[in-house]
Design a binder for these strands. Structure first.
Lengths: 264, 264
DNA sequence: CCAAAAGTGTTTGAACTACACCCATGC
DNA sequence: GCATGGGTGTAGTTCAAACACTTTTGG
């Protein structure tokens, strides 16, 4: 392989041209399950298969700006009060059979995202239960024959994305991005239980949430009836890091042998 | 902002062309300090400033392959027995004034890397002490007037890279990539002390290294005289994750408010 | 012998687990 | 009342920090 060197005075004819795209793994929690938004492809390649939403990076924007723009287009939301961050970049030469495409994948999550609408380039859009997808290194709890075909290298991207979300709950306060403010500690605990696939002790969770500066008490209680006592309401503390971290119990959705050694 | 959409049947004329490069933050430990390899630029832009080594991604390789190739070229090593991983992608539109360049930054570290040689496109190459660089969000312990000018957005990349290295020592066994096998526990402890900028208790460190499957005992002792008792020698366990993690004490090189929320 | 580094043991305290128990609300 | 979920208290355990102490080597 004799790739081009990078002389200081290079001009446009010296470098191989690439297309740069963003792909988004947008997560939300619905009906007690971790869901991700996928769009069904209308045309070849991978016609009929399901793919992460995404699109080209414009010549005048950076990847994160492009990801925010695509997020707004795909969810149809004016104001997105969740979280978006870069995941990793996928650049295998044959990952798109049409042309040389490098994709900067991002992860987003938010509470209560509305039903998706199909875009011009997609036959359909749907919130898929993560446990119904066949992802390398993760256990599929549903029926394998119901699992959708995933286009391109999106199974790998999704595996890395799920890993990232599960890991970030441990040492950051990002769980609060999955619930609407204000929230009850039950709702926040359900985020951990859903993403990790475990049950947490309510009393111990309360202690860690308060001492670890994950949530702070609001005045008043939740007006919605729950069948029991009314819960106190909380809001995020504004702190980014959880100190000490929330430990992931044995049996929780585990780290896979991720190809991208991302940040914690 | 009207960036191109991504119709399924796009052809090459539909997308904005980008150059894709890799930049490497190559770390080693020398003289008890954390060092990073920088090359001095010969030509404009940023002539005379110091930059991370890097180069174009070839049309037939992925970013990680390009990073390994550049690593071999810059260090001149036949066999590199350290660690290389993707860090993040930097894509601000004006980050290179000449053209639209997206860079996939990588982090590498290894023990005892040799003195660098200047490449064709660099006036000089040098191992810089990380504490002598002026990095946003990190404290500079040396003389600010001696700090080199950093080209492009490489100060930001370096900040994220140092963050990543410091964080990875906590919950992985990657510290062993900074020492030659076999190693003594003192050498391994010096890795943590150097990267984090703290002193660790030798007794407690020994316990954690053995119980947390960071290192395993080899037969024999280190033949080199140290001025004291001969140390036992150890080798990596092959485990990737440190369970439980090595806690970073107060005062350790801290996480900055990183722009890239990397994996842990 | 003395200094310096390797390695062991012990005490203390923080924090997590598990589980029992009381409180508030709907039916 | 009784079921259900919210919230508090507490005993036991695990583990890390701090530090004293012993062992081995070079001079």
């Amino acid at each position: 392989m004799s790739a081009a060197k990078a002389p200081d005075g290079y001009d446009a004819s010296d470098y191989p041209p690439f297309a740069v795209t963003v792909d988004l793994a947008i997560f939300t929690i619905r009906d007690g399950h971790l869901k991700v938004l996928l769009v069904q492809r209308a045309d070849d390649p991978y016609a009929g298969a399901w793919a992460l939403p995404g699109g080209f990076v414009g010549i005048d924007e950076d990847a994160t700006t492009a990801a925010w723009r695509e997020l707004a287009e795909e969810t149809g939301l004016e104001r997105f009060d969740g979280h978006l961050e870069q995941l990793a970049t996928y650049s295998a030469p044959e990952r798109d059979p049409r042309m040389r495409v490098v994709s900067v994948a991002h992860v987003a999550f938010a509470p209560n995202l509305p039903d998706p609408r199909a875009g011009s380039d997609a036959a359909a859009a749907h919130w898929w239960d993560v446990d119904d997808l066949f992802l390398p290194g993760l256990t599929l709890t549903g029926d394998p024959t119901d699992a959708p075909d995933l286009a391109f290298d999106h199974a790998q991207i999704l595996t890395d994305a799920v890993d990232r979300v599960a890991a970030k709950l441990e040492y950051t306060t990002l769980a609060t991005a999955f619930v609407e403010t204000p929230f009850t500690l039950s709702e926040l605990r359900h985020v951990y239980e859903t993403v990790w696939g475990v049950r947490l002790d309510p009393g111990n969770f309360r202690r860690k949430a308060e001492t670890g500066s994950l949530a702070t008490k609001d005045p008043g209680t939740d007006p919605r009836p729950t069948g029991g006592r009314r819960a106190a309401v909380y809001r995020p503390t504004g702190t980014a890091a959880l100190q000490p971290p929330m430990l992931r119990p044995d049996g929780a959705r585990a780290k896979t042998t991720a190809t991208t050694g991302g940040p914690r």
